[in-house]
């Protein structure tokens, strides 16, 4: 057994061709996951939508992403109304099924993070805004959102890395992301160490990049906070 550095180097351009898919999945799910999380956090404060929201978070945090993906990709087309509705052009595509699974999964985890951040807001702040005559909207925009953002950012950063790692499951529904390309090269060359380690290096670089960005943002948002 030998470690073929040349093979590893020649595989990099091919693997990087899969990076576009990985980043697309990440970008779309990041935005829609955050949107879902914000809607869910709001729903949790209402009377009638509270239980649906709690059930959603409980289900998507308590089951593996791979199972959620298979329920969506293989399972949903079982229902006639899925195949006849206007959403069929999307749900037929593995790419959008993967995005849907990632977004719903990420949304549930981020909703839980936001809940934790909300606990960090004391009752006194609400009373203070009230005494200052701030409307509910202004209280939300000027007090709640900035504080919750700062409190949640470190945990949210971990969640973004976790989402990035989850995109690797895309190859189970035939998508050619970095891991998907790596699997197909290994199937040809049967050199798992060289190829998978090269892919791992790409992911590690992404992780490092995202961690750096988040900690920059943290430092920026926390510039007035006292240490």
């Amino acid at each position: 057994m030998s470690f073929d550095i040349a093979l590893m180097l020649t595989s990099f351009p091919q693997l990087l061709a899969g990076l576009g898919m990985t980043l697309q999945l990440l970008g779309i799910s990041l935005v829609s996951g955050l949107a879902i999380a914000i809607v869910t956090s709001w729903a949790r404060t209402t009377r009638f939508l509270r239980w649906p929201a709690e059930t959603y978070v409980y289900f998507f945090r308590g089951t593996p992403l791979l199972v959620q993906l298979f329920v969506i990709y293989f399972g949903l087309p079982q229902a006639e109304f899925v195949r006849s509705g206007p959403w069929w052009p999307f749900l037929r595509e593995p790419f959008w099924c993967m995005c849907l699974a990632l977004s719903l999964n990420n949304g549930a985890y981020v909703a839980e993070i936001i809940r934790g951040g909300m606990l960090g807001i004391g009752k006194g702040l609400k009373e203070a805004s009230w005494a200052l005559g701030l409307s509910r909207f202004h209280h939300l925009r000027l007090v709640t959102v900035p504080i919750v953002t700062r409190l949640c950012l470190p945990t949210y950063g971990n969640e973004v890395v976790s989402l990035m790692k989850s995109t690797a499951l895309a190859s189970t529904v035939t998508l050619l992301d970095v891991t998907g390309v790596a699997r197909s090269i290994v199937a040809e060359t049967f050199a798992p160490y060289e190829i998978f380690i090269a892919a791992a290096l790409i992911y590690l670089a992404l992780t490092f990049l995202m961690q750096t960005l988040v900690s920059r943002l943290e430092a920026r948002l926390g510039r007035y906070a006292q240490r």
Binding site: M1, A168, T179, R183, V186, A191, P192, F196, A200, Y203
Partner: peptide, 25 residues
């Protein structure tokens, strides 16, 4: 750093196929 920064699925593939290559050799 490596095991928290790399996808779980990729590590599983690496360990499964990698161990096969090593054991065979």
């Amino acid at each position: 750093v490596v095991f928290r920064g790399t996808p779980e699925f990729l590590l599983l593939l690496l360990i499964y196929f990698g161990s096969a290559v090593t054991l065979t050799a």
